[in-house]
Design a protein around this nucleic acid. Structure first.
Lengths: 221, 221
DNA sequence: CCTACCGATCGGTAGG
DNA sequence: CCTACCGATCGGTAGG
């Protein structure tokens, strides 16, 4: 419509995007470098812990010089906060997508909902690119007080999804014990797998989900 | 019998223990200092993590100068290993004592045995002087390979106690799912409480044990 | 167990 | 994003 094909033969130097001062390639690269730092930080924080990982280690892993991470992040703590935030955002997305997919198929039973949540959670903590959430789970004390609230917001949303499902299972008698304590213990059972799960051996994530449900759920009345 | 009361009046300086070069008081004191270091190390390692705790922090907490911990321990890593070993020895003692006490009362059902193990475990990780085992649970990666085997021996003994109990419950139908996976998930549910349990609020350790059993056990057939 | 100290490493910055 | 650097801290040691 309002885009006449005025032949710009008079314009010798063709410009790509009007508002930006050229160097679109550099900008995409900047994003790549930041993402590389996040990814390597998550991997190293998970493997060795926050305090035992130096910003130099992270820089080297991302192919940078020792001072360069501070061009992208204000401090080592800000890098940790970014890892946790990124992890929670991805986890929340994956959780919501899994729920949406299961609702689309049919009206799910509460136990089906729990299976979806458990399976999605196992994927978040043990699947590919799963370094971010374990860092959040096991390095929480290293996060400065000031930066906890934002991550807590996402964490509350993620955990809140479980509440109505667990309550429904409690009401139907399939889950015994206080639902709030049950949620904490279920999370414990699942999150602990970060310490022992070996993707090469033992069970698959599907097997883990099956066992968890067998363990925690009673037969429906 | 062969201990004639020869009056040692000819001996002007009375000696306490023949083999040791006097200073029994100092020796007991040495043990106290070492114990103080262990206790403060466990507390600080639990609170801030191994890597984030300096040997100076530990020395100060124990009322010593910065170099003094190395009179008692070869290295910071040796101090960590000693904390874990001390913790596992205490845990194993408490576990065996709890079992012995429960067997004395009556021939216990498998579910009673599990209750005893769960309650004793909660005491080990959440009760008084419970800094040692959480350090082992959450700082394992900080322990040097060479020092893992000794702690692993104790850990295997502690965990081995659970195996026949869980198998019996599985055979009676009270516990569903693979017993070996069940043990890992049960440990996860309990160990995770280190992250959220607040002795001032919420439930008591007895309540926690009750909920865990309600959650994991089916009604006996 | 203290005093005094060392070499190494760390998070972070100025200036380009 | 790199170069070059700083002040602080750390684990550990010699000598008493």
């Amino acid at each position: 419509m309002s885009l006449p094909s005025t032949p710009a033969a008079t314009d010798p130097a063709p410009r790509r995007a009007r508002g930006r001062p050229r160097k679109t390639a550099d900008e995409r690269d900047d994003g790549n470098r930041r993402q590389a730092l996040l990814r390597e930080a998550a991997r190293l924080f998970r493997q060795h812990g926050f305090a035992a990982t130096s910003t130099r280690d992270i820089a080297t892993a991302a192919g940078m010089q020792s001072g360069s991470p501070f061009y992208h992040f204000d401090s080592k703590e800000a890098l940790l906060a970014a890892v946790m935030q990124e992890g929670m955002e991805r986890a929340l997305q994956r959780q919501q997508a899994a729920i949406a997919a299961s609702v689309e198929e049919r009206a799910p039973e509460p136990s089906d909902c729990l299976r979806v949540l458990v399976r999605s959670h196992l994927d978040v903590i043990l699947g590919p690119d799963s370094d971010f959430i374990p860092v959040m789970l096991y390095e929480w004390r290293s996060l400065a007080e000031a930066q906890r609230s934002e991550v807590n917001r996402l964490k509350d949303a993620y955990e809140g999804t479980w509440v109505p499902v667990l309550r429904a299972l409690h009401d139907s008698g399939e889950l015994r014990g206080d639902p709030s304590l049950a949620r904490l213990m279920l999370f414990g059972a699942l999150n602990w797998s970060v310490q022992w799960f070996d993707p090469a051996r033992r069970a698959s994530l599907d097997d883990l989900a099956d066992t968890a449900l067998q363990l925690f759920l009673k037969d429906p009345a």
